[in-house]
Amino acid sequence: MAVDKQLALKLLKQMMEIRQFEDKIMELLARNIAEGGSHLYAGMEAVAVGAISVLRPDDYITSTHRGHGHAIAKDGDLKALMAEILGKKTGVCKGKGGSLHLADVSKGNLGANGVVGGSIGMATGAALSVKMRKTNQVVVCFFGDGATNQGIFYESLNIAALWKLPVVYVCENNFYGMSVSVKRASAVEDLSRKALAFDMPAETVNGMDVLAVREAVGRRVEEARNQFQPSLVVANTYRYYGHSRSDPRVYRTREEEKFWKERDPIPNFASRMIEQGVLIEQEVTELEEQVRQSIEEATRYAIDSPWPEPEELYTDLYA
């Protein structure tokens, strides 16, 4: 798959933004500047970036409890996202949503979700709306391996296949639903087989390879857009941090973590691009520094932003 410099820089930049954003959130949590918790996307960047890179700006996504990566890749504003995670007035949801509810409907991001599988029905409904309004948009629905054990997963895939809806279900298989491994939670380890029940095309892709994700989801998005063919893409990937900050990661080995970190989507993609002569080392270093500055700016903006006024408690409830 040919990649030009512009695309390589865009993909690399988004993945770096997500990684550094997540590392920064971890730091803010440790320093108690960010209160509460956050489920971090570090390690999984290639999935959100690769999948969303094939979408039009007006296409929709639905996201998950581990949703910072999707929000950034769907043209999210780093400052507004960081401020939202801190609960500030300037947050993308005015400080009322937080990490678990990052959303920007104006950019086609129908939101992160605090409930595993909670947005699969919504994604399917957005695809129905697209088809009824004849707008040629596509919906990409992200969820994790754990969500494939929820009832609404089966209800929704059945409806999408039955009604021929333009939705691509992207399962981010990071092998653990909180602490319970896929082996211990799912009777079928190859999660793509769960689509067989609906005669829905499905495939598994290396979720640590941004170009592989881009190729597979790109193909499926075109089928959805042009033929109303829904599909399931399972991207095998890994989350570097624990489920949340209090997670001691006793359910997985340090060897396993090392195995996946050797397959890190960011340096691997960067060196591949350098090898192929698409980028030079200096461009990668400069990009990393540029991203570092934008994350620092976003952090300062979020920390310096005001809290919501008390009157905000009762606004935005009803339209």
């Binding site: 929709y60 639905t62 409907v105 129908l110 699969i120 029905g121 919504m122 994604a123 399917t124 409904g125 957005a126 695809a127 129905l128 709306s129 697209v130 009824m132 309004r133 009832g151 609404i152 209800e155 929704s156 059945n158 409806i159 039955l162």
Partner: peptide
């Protein structure tokens, strides 16, 4: 629809959020 109450509401919500 299929007998899928959770998805009936979920699909309705998704459609409502996006112009229907």
């Amino acid at each position: 629809t299929p007998i899928s109450e959770s998805a009936i509401v979920g699909v309705g919500l998704g459609a409502a959020l996006t112009g229907m």
